[in-house]
Design a protein around this nucleic acid. Structure first.
Lengths: 187, 187
DNA sequence: TTCACTATTTGACAAAAGTCAAGCTTGAAT
DNA sequence: ATTCAAGCTTGACTTTTGTCAAATAGTGAA
């Protein structure tokens, strides 16, 4: 069984029939480092799951790259706004290691959610955990210092520092590279 | 038809049967100003909808009140973490005007979502819009100046300034009362 | 109308993080 | 092995917002 199927079952178990139909709708791509999964100003058709590797989601703001999310293996990722609202995304999704990535197309997912009640429930639970995560992150950005945010990251995902350039990590934490560098030198 | 039923239909239309069962599960309370809908350290059993009035969600952080959300009439509100994860909430929900508030109990909602596929879909869509909103707000907190955030609020919900004390508004915007006061005096 | 709050404004100063500019390090390609 | 570019560090200075303290305005009850 792959990480994906395991992740699905953990969120919300499916009947054998649903799981079969659902699992078949995911495609698997093996891509190189720096492969673009989503180009700027495109409608994002896929929810992705990273089986192996690392991806980052970023965009340009006043000419600068902002890293909005970093997905390590075992995580789902997508352009939330674009995927659900079906509008072009300013986001860019790129692998930053050679990776194996599963993806399911929006229309397939929605058709299955319509057909199978338990897939609709799974989707609801996925969105719910994403919402809870989003709230935690907002709280962190609003109330924690740069230092606290970095330490929280080290607690929750220590591997990230070995695998992802500091520029991306700084931006993901909502601080500058210089500030991150100063924080790191103080320990 | 009340605002609630209208809001539901806008998010995701229900069959007559589902709507009937669903609508009947909402209770309506008429409460005074400063009524507590959720006490600190309690599991939040309800999703609320404010038919008329204003409510605010807040909590204590280092002895200070932090206003996390302000709900004007026509809006749903709840303690997301507590409602979905069934853990006690540090949040307090309080009306700040005499209000009419609908509420549906967690267990009733879940039973209905299990029984009716279209209610599960409605719930999924509610959570999805909440997620999108949460992302927009995070972006605002991370990248907009105090001034920009206040102006955005004036654009989207101008009535709020007439109906809600500035202390709550400042906190909701993630700034201090003093900073808000300075921003307002500059225009 | 006045009192006693509570809400809001203003001022002086402090802290956290950003900006700009320069200098180091390091690892991959020739 | 050498070189060059990307990645990271360090320093000096600026900006935004917060903190603390005090003054002023507003409001409802006696």
């Amino acid at each position: 069984m792959d990480l994906l199927q395991n992740a699905i079952t953990t969120i919300s178990p499916l009947s054998a029939e649903s799981m079969d139909a659902f699992h078949q709708s995911w495609k698997l791509w093996s891509v190189k480092k720096d492969h673009l999964l989503l180009k700027e100003n495109t409608v994002s058709d896929y929810i992705y799951f990273i089986e192996k590797g690392v991806a980052r989601i970023y965009y340009y703001k006043n000419g600068k790259e902002i890293t909005e999310w970093i997905a390590l293996d075992g995580q789902f990722f997508l352009s939330i706004t674009s995927f659900f609202q079906r509008v072009p995304s300013h986001l860019i999704i790129q692998t930053i290691e050679p990776s194996e990535v599963f993806g399911i197309h929006h229309d397939d997912f929605m058709k299955l959610a319509d057909k199978y009640h338990d897939i609709e429930r799974l989707l609801r639970k996925m969105v719910t955990s994403s919402l809870i995560l989003s709230q935690v992150r907002m709280d962190s950005i609003q109330f924690e210092s740069a230092q606290q945010r970095y330490e929280r990251l080290l607690q929750t995902t220590p591997q990230i520092v070995q695998r992802v350039p500091l520029t991306y990590i700084a931006s993901f934490l909502g601080i500058t590279l210089e500030t991150l560098s100063r924080i790191r030198s103080q320990r």
